[in-house]
Amino acid sequence: MRADTHDIPTLKVLLVGNSNVGKTAIFERFVDDFYDPETTTATIGVDFRSKIVEVRDTKVKLNIWDTAGQERFRSLTSSYFRNALGALIVFDLSVYETFEQLPLWFRELRTYSSDQQVATVVVGAKLDKVGSRVVNRSEGMAMADKNGAGYIEVSAKTGVGVVEAFEMLIGRIMDTPALWKDGDVLARTDSVVAVDQVEEGTRYCGC
């Protein structure tokens, strides 16, 4: 098993978007399959976690950076956009302003993620708030298309779409030859020792 983990490519992905759109909730739902309204607080700086997932029969290790949404934090966080292979750009389906700002987030990513192309997926969050939705699906898809991104709607509260969002992002990274085949990704494979103890319990301990 250890040999396996050695070969697992590591993908650096980001969660970006305006404040209070639900980035951290998506992050926690994905990493821990956990949602608790008592833990929803603003992220200061970044949160970092990793998780190993399997997409198209390939195991990859995702290093996920959950960033603070308030504008002023960008001076701290944007330098860590570099080397990111993919990003989930999150907006709140019930707050139109967060949707309107998506283009600015695309620009931000292009500016700070060095020269390479970044795979992106636009994520409409808070799908569970049925009645207060103000952005419709076709509008969201059009916006994503225009920026060459994938589009998905999710609810961290119910869990709908969260895993699929990350899978879609990984798929798009894999489909982008510049990101995947270049050897760029594989070159960044880290030697993993302690990682599995975090994600997969004690299964690999002591081997």
Binding site: S19, Q101, T111
Partner: peptide
């Protein structure tokens, strides 16, 4: 000025 460029995104 690239590094110092103010981001245009407003923290909503």
């Amino acid at each position: 000025s690239k590094i110092r460029s103010k981001s245009a995104v407003r923290g909503g």
